[in-house]
Each structure stands twice: as structure tokens, then as C-alpha cells.
Amino acid sequence: MIRSSLEPVVVGTPRHLQSGDSLAFQARSTHEWSNPVPVDAEVVWAITPPLPRRELFPAWKKRGTAAG
């Protein structure tokens, strides 16, 4: 957390993060978040290693090129 606060819920466990806090979890874990205050939150997200695109966007289909 860079600024303000955030309330993430990871695999059903709620947390409260404030400026200077951090949280690590598996990217495939069910998660959601909300901002409990009327001030914009500033957060740095890092996903490493990156998830394959097909996991992030299940409906995404690789576009091929038409030979013609």
C-alpha cells in the first residue's frame, strides 16, 4: 500500500491494509478487495510469475492470420 487503505479478502479471509503494508498470495486464489474510505487508494500490484493469458482471460482466443 502506497497511500490510504484497502480491505482485501483472500480465500474468504478479510484483511485491512494501510500505507506501508503488503500482502502476498497465490494469484489463482479467490480474492476481492474494497476501499473502506472515501480517499483514493494507491497500490502496487505485482504478479510473478505471470499467469498465462488463457487463465486471466478464459474467453480470449488466439487470433491467427489468414493466408491469402
Rank of each mutant, 00 (worst) to 15 (best):
H16G: 04
A46C: 11
L6V: 08
K61R: 15
H16I: 02
R53C: 05
E32Q: 11
V11P: 00
A66V: 14
L51H: 11
V44F: 08
L56Y: 00
V10F: 03
V10Q: 01
P52L: 11
E42D: 12
K62V: 13
E32G: 08
V37L: 12
T48R: 02
V9T: 15
Q18L: 05
A46S: 07
P36N: 05
R63F: 06
A27W: 14
S5D: 12
L51G: 08
R3G: 01
E32D: 15
L56I: 13
V11G: 14
R54F: 12
A27I: 12
M1D: 09
V9L: 09
L56Q: 10
A46N: 10
K62T: 14
P58W: 01
W45H: 12
W45S: 06
R63Y: 02
V39Q: 09
P49S: 12
P14I: 02
G68H: 02
R15L: 07
G64S: 09
S4F: 00
R53L: 13
L51Q: 13
V43P: 00
W60P: 00
R54A: 14
S4W: 03
P50I: 15
A27H: 08
W33Q: 04
G12S: 07
S29N: 08
T30Q: 14
F57C: 10
R63E: 13
N35P: 03
P36E: 07
A66G: 07
K61E: 10
M1N: 07
W60L: 07
A41T: 10
Q26D: 14
W60K: 02
Q26E: 12
G20W: 07
I47L: 07
A59F: 15
W60T: 00
P36I: 05
T48M: 13
V43N: 00
L17Y: 01
V10L: 05
K61H: 05
A41F: 04
H16Y: 06
